[in-house]
Write a protein that binds this DNA or RNA. Structure first.
Lengths: 134, 134
DNA sequence: ATAAATACCAAGTAGATTACTTGGTATTTA
DNA sequence: TAAATACCAAGTAATCTACTTGGTATTTAT
């Protein structure tokens, strides 16, 4: 089955948590993990990807933690999910990472996957962090 | 990564193969498998699902094989992929099979997944077998 | 200075899933 | 009666997910 994994779920929860505290002091990973009921050690790996994609920044040491790099209304679900899942491509032949596919000039099936990918992207890009909490 | 598996790929290939021969004699699984370069034994499992979803019908014995139950322009990619992949839901909380999700009355994240699912479905439902070959 | 709390990093692992294979039985036609 | 087909159930190797384990580096409070 084609389903986003808990990577998408957990990273969205973490980003929503940070969005709610936007403008305040950094929040530690331990606090986010506890509040969102996610393994801290696993979330660590996901937030590393969010940082690599410039969605959060960190400060070390006591009182350290994470904050968003941008206002919550400027970060989309697509940004978050693409960072942690790696791609929004619903099929390998339309993934940037894995572009092996049929060699045909104009593959009709590939065109279909391109459309599916576009529609997924559109949905997720139009959803901002601010749309995910009230 | 959220990607459809080879189940979607193989079953689409098989159905396109059958669509091209629509109205003629049944085609054997062995022939489809050979032409599409798919393991016959694996394809057997996939075509069983297509049959269970009433997309193909079979005749046994020598000269036996498979034919489509409907005209190729009446069968969508969504029909085929849903039959073999099990669901088009991009996240467990919007899957019919697995409806466990947050207990909140109006979960904003769930609403997002509902929209994503709808847009995937729309793309795949609008693509008929006849759109996948010329 | 030192201890505590934090981020950061690399490698290992159990369980689930995918993509098959294996070894059959049942049915139909030549 | 033999061959070709569909149909069926169970086993399996490789891969992926969702972690865990065991550290190091940095910063603040005491």
């Amino acid at each position: 089955m084609m389903q986003f994994s808990t990577k998408a779920e957990y990273s969205l929860k973490a980003m929503i948590n940070l969005a709610k505290h936007y403008g305040k002091e950094p929040i530690s990973l331990a606090k986010i993990a506890k509040e969102e009921k996610i393994s801290k050690e696993y979330l660590e790996q996901l937030i590393a990807k969010l940082k690599a994609n410039n969605l959060v920044k960190s400060t070390k040491g006591v009182k350290g933690g994470y904050i968003l790099t941008k206002k919550p209304n400027l970060i989309s679900a697509a940004d978050v999910i693409e960072a942690t899942e790696g791609s929004l491509a619903p099929f390998y032949c339309v993934s940037d990472a894995d572009a092996r596919c049929c060699t045909k000039k104009d593959c009709l099936t590939k065109n279909m996957w391109i459309n599916v990918k576009k529609s997924i992207k559109k949905s997720l890009e139009s959803t901002k962090l601010t749309d995910l909490y009230k």
